[in-house]
Computed example of a mutant assay.
Amino acid sequence: MALPVPYGFTFNPKDHELIYLLLRKANGNSLPVDEHLIEECDLFGKEEPWEIFGRGTEKTRYFFAKLKKKGKSAHGSNFVRTAGKGTWKGQDGMIPIKDDQGKTIGFKKNLIYMGKGPNTHGRWLMKEYHLHGVSLQPPPKVE
């Protein structure tokens, strides 16, 4: 069950904390945070980034989004990253995210939105997180 967000709370998770939240979501477990802090959204659809991100008041937003593979091959590593009339372009390779013991638990990729046309409403940046391996164990429960 998600805990209520107290007044004045700022959601500012570290990379490894986001990986553990993603793991919980991927395993079908409930999240220990309010569902409004990390929303489910189709970031790679028909809407422009400013239409999606403009719905909230926070400058930084968090979403769960499913990637769509290009083509029919389930083993390929290329994904569809179009959004509205533009594309999310990778700015670097996959950056490893490590736990406290130095084990790689996931990856981060920085993306920038490249819109078509002159009116792209500023610069849009996104960080995309991926799990690493299927044997990843969730962190110990804090009670």
Rank of each mutant, 00 (worst) to 15 (best):
I38V: 13
W88H: 08
L23I: 02
P140C: 06
T104R: 14
G45T: 00
I105D: 01
G28F: 05
P13E: 02
L136C: 07
T87N: 12
G86F: 01
N12H: 11
E40W: 07
K68E: 09
G54D: 05
G76N: 08
G117Q: 11
M114E: 14
T120D: 09
K46D: 08
M126C: 06
A83C: 13
A74C: 10
P139R: 11
G86K: 02
L22A: 04
E58I: 00
I112H: 08
S135V: 10
L67Y: 00
H36F: 08
L37E: 06
S135K: 15
I105N: 03
L131W: 02
K127G: 03
Q137P: 02
I52D: 00
E47P: 00
P4N: 08
H75T: 15
L67N: 09
T82Y: 01
P6G: 05
H75Y: 13
N12C: 06
G122C: 09
D34I: 00
L18T: 04
L18G: 00
H132R: 06
K108N: 05
V5Q: 14
I19F: 06
P96R: 08
K109D: 10
V134Y: 10
G93E: 09
F107D: 00
E51S: 09
Q101R: 15
E40Q: 10
H132L: 04
K68Q: 09
H121D: 08
D15V: 04
E143C: 10
M126P: 01
F53S: 11
T104K: 14
E47W: 02
D100K: 15
L21D: 06
L67I: 01
Y20K: 02
S77L: 11
R61L: 05
K127Y: 11
K59W: 01
A26Q: 15
C41R: 05
M126T: 05
Q101M: 13
H130T: 08
D42I: 00
I38S: 03
Y129Q: 04
F44T: 03
T10S: 13
E17Q: 12
K127S: 08
V33Y: 03
F63Q: 04
I97T: 01
P32Y: 05
I105A: 04
N27R: 15
A65I: 00
P49D: 03
K72H: 12
F64V: 00
V134N: 15
P32W: 02
R55Y: 08
K85L: 13
E143Y: 14
R24W: 01
R55L: 09
L125F: 14
L31A: 03
L3M: 12
Q137H: 12
F11K: 11
H16A: 04
P13D: 03
G115Q: 07
P118Y: 11
G54L: 07
P6M: 06
T10G: 03
H75M: 15
K69M: 09
G71V: 11
N110M: 12
Y7G: 11
G117R: 10
R24P: 00
S77V: 13
G28L: 02
M1E: 13
T104I: 15
P49M: 07
H132Y: 10
Y20A: 01
L22T: 05
I112F: 10
K68S: 12
D100R: 15
L3R: 14
F44W: 01
R123D: 07
L37D: 07
A65F: 01
I97R: 02
L131R: 03
W50L: 10
R61T: 05
P139W: 10
E40V: 03
P32H: 02
L131S: 03
H16R: 10
L67D: 08
